[in-house]
Design a protein around this nucleic acid. Structure first.
Lengths: 158, 158
DNA sequence: ATACTTGCAAATGATTTGCCAGTGT
DNA sequence: ACACTGGCAAATCATTTGCAAGTAT
C-alpha cells in the first residue's frame, strides 16, 4: 500500500517529464519503458496491458506482455500510472492524473466515463452516513446503467 | 410455498423448495445439483465456485469444477442463485435473495458486507443527480474502506 | 428411450514467475 | 562492471468448451 519514496502523484504533461521522474526515482530509462509511456500518452483512454503490448493495434511498437505487466506495476508503485477495473474484462491502464478521477461503468452498453472526485462527494457522504464506509471509485467504479441505457430500456429487468 | 412455477427471483427457505423450482423450470434433479444447493445452504456467506467444488474445504461432497460452473450459471439464469465480484479474486456465489441485497467491500482488510437496497437509496439518488447513472451494487459492490479500517488508518493516503 | 448431465481433459484469457542474455548508468 | 531489464517460455488462476459415458424422467 505504501507509495514510493518520492513525491505524491505526479501530473504528467509530457513523455520526457515522466521519464525524468522514472530516472529520478531510481528506475532506468530503457527503450521499452519509453515506448510504454509514449503508448499511454497516445492512447484514447484507459487501455489494457494487452493493447499496450500490441502497440494499440499495430500503430506503434510492440512490447513483450510480461514486460508490460511488470513495468505497469513498477510505474504504478511510483505513482506514475494507475489502473481501473471496468466491469468484467482486463484492467485498464492510464497515466496517473492529479485529481485521481473516479469512474462509472455501464453494464448494459459497456460504456465508461470519468468524473472529478468532487462530483461524487455527496454520494460518498450518503454512503458514509448509511454504512460508515469511505467509498472510492478510482480503482473499482460505480457500476449500473448509463443515462442513455436508462432512457432506452425504461424499467427493464434488475 | 405458493406455486413457484416461473416467477422471477425466489426466496429459498430450504433445499427441497429450491429443488422443486429446479424441476418446475425444466431442469433435472441430479445428485451433483442437490449437493451444490446443499452446499450453498451450508455456506457461511458468498463462496467461490472452487470452494463449492471442493466441498467447503472437505466438509461436504466434492464436485467437478466445470459442472459447478455450469450449474451455477444455469441456476443463476433461473434466478435461483446469483454472484457478486468482491474486489479482486474469484466471483462469490450465493442463493438468490428476495431483496437482492447490495454489497460493500473493504479493499484494506478484505471484509465485505451486505445491506438492504433501501439503505443505499439516498446514495443512488446522489449518483443519479450527479451523473445520470442508475447505480446498482448487487453484482459489483461499493469498494472503499470499512469503518474499522477508516478508524485505524486515520487519514492515510487515498 | 432420449435428452439432459456429469466428469475429465483440454482450451482460453489475464496475469505472474523464472531465468538468462542484454544494457543503462 | 554490475545491478537493473527485456524477452521468451512456462506456470498459475479463474473460467469455458468439447465430448463420450451416465442417468433422470
Amino acid at each position: 500500500m505504501a507509495r514510493a519514496n518520492a513525491g505524491p502523484i505526479l501530473a504528467a504533461p509530457d513523455v520526457e517529464t515522466v521519464l525524468s521522474a522514472v530516472r529520478a526515482r531510481g528506475l532506468r530509462v530503457t527503450t521499452p519503458r519509453r515506448v510504454l509511456i509514449e503508448t499511454l500518452f497516445a492512447a484514447p483512454g484507459p487501455v489494457s496491458a494487452e493493447e499496450i503490448a500490441s502497440g494499440l493495434g499495430g500503430t506503434r511498437a510492440d512490447l513483450d506482455d510480461a514486460s508490460v505487466y511488470g513495468n505497469l506495476e513498477r510505474l504504478e508503485a511510483l505513482g506514475l500510472v494507475r489502473h481501473v477495473h471496468l466491469g468484467h474484462g482486463p484492467g485498464k491502464w492510464m497515466l496517473a492524473d492529479r485529481a485521481r478521477r473516479e469512474y462509472l461503468h455501464c453494464d448494459s452498453c459497456g460504456a465508461s466515463e470519468a468524473v472529478e472526485p468532487s462530483a461524487l462527494a455527496p454520494a460518498r457522504e450518503a454512503i458514509r452516513a448509511a454504512t460508515g464506509y469511505e467509498a472510492r471509485f478510482t480503482h473499482f467504479p460505480i457500476v449500473g446503467r448509463c443515462p442513455q441505457c436508462v432512457r432506452e430500456a425504461g424499467d427493464g429487468p434488475g
